[in-house]
Design a protein around this nucleic acid. Sequence first.
DNA 1: TCTAATCCCATGATATCCCACAGTTTCCCA
DNA 2: TGGGAAACTGTGGGATATCATGGGATTAGA
Lengths: 159, 159
Amino acid sequence: MNRFVGNFTLRLDSKGRVSIPGPFRSALRRDGFGGLCCYPAMDRPAIDAGGNALMVEIEALIGRYAPFSDQRELLALALFGTSETLKIDGEGRVVLGENLKRHAEISETVTFVGLGHKFQIWEPGRFHGELAEATRKVRALKGELSSQVAAPKAPGARE
Amino acid sequence: MNRFVGNFTLRLDSKGRVSIPGPFRSALRRDGFGGLCCYPAMDRPAIDAGGNALMVEIEALIGRYAPFSDQRELLALALFGTSETLKIDGEGRVVLGENLKRHAEISETVTFVGLGHKFQIWEPGRFHGELAEATRKVRALKGELSSQVAAPKAPGARE
DNA sequence: TCTAATCCCATGATATCCCACAGTTTCCCA
DNA sequence: TGGGAAACTGTGGGATATCATGGGATTAGA
């Protein structure tokens, strides 16, 4: 079983290191990629992180466009250009780069949140806020669903 | 791991030398090409750089057009004609040619940006501007993508 | 002989590796 | 069923290697 599930809150030490939660660490190990691929999440003050699987996903996204095309260069710049592959030390820790920490407004504690094929790293307070918000939305969505019968209406993309 | 990822800002010394960032340097070493192949990026005030993989890609691009066709000659001129192969010294540094520096408006600090198979060298200020622009466009693109994904049967992949 | 490019060594800062330890949880065996 | 023993996790800090950078020496080219 190779996905990231659950959430864990951990502290950064004086050198800025954080342990990757055990379950995530073993999922990464299985995935075969020595390091941790991270980039600032779009639209959210969080860090997206993962291993090979995530990297391949990004590559596939970029690979859809022709080499030297504008769109490809743009995507590559925004994705590869802002991501960092962090080294994982013998104890399973990483040091987050300054950009990443700034983007997620992380200071001394972080929450790891499993998202299946990848996971996110949040500042704990912001994560709880976001979670509450998400719960509220899901509840609303559920209400909507139960009031519909089985309408095959196209599900609009929402964010 | 053999691609260029992340961004690094470094200084030119009094002799005009810049260190190639460690991760890029080792990727180049793996790629087997002794020097660094550079040319002014099309449409952008930046320098495209890479090793063997980049040259192969350029060749493939040019090879798509019929020999002696206008497009082919033009591309060859723009890419091969303007490229220089820089020597990498014992410490992993290169000296950028005057053309390159002028094109990218580089003075004393540069930002190396990984783009997967190749990387770019920017004047840091211009890079930040371009990155902001790219992020904005990618966000728009993401909206498009997520509305496409909802159409076929969702294989558990979500964002 | 002079200029410029290349090589070589020095150095401070940073990152990486390595060992240590305390709190839990798991496991084992009486 | 209870009492350890062992393993693992998160945390801490010192030692070592690597990186970015600076400058002198050496070679090459004109």
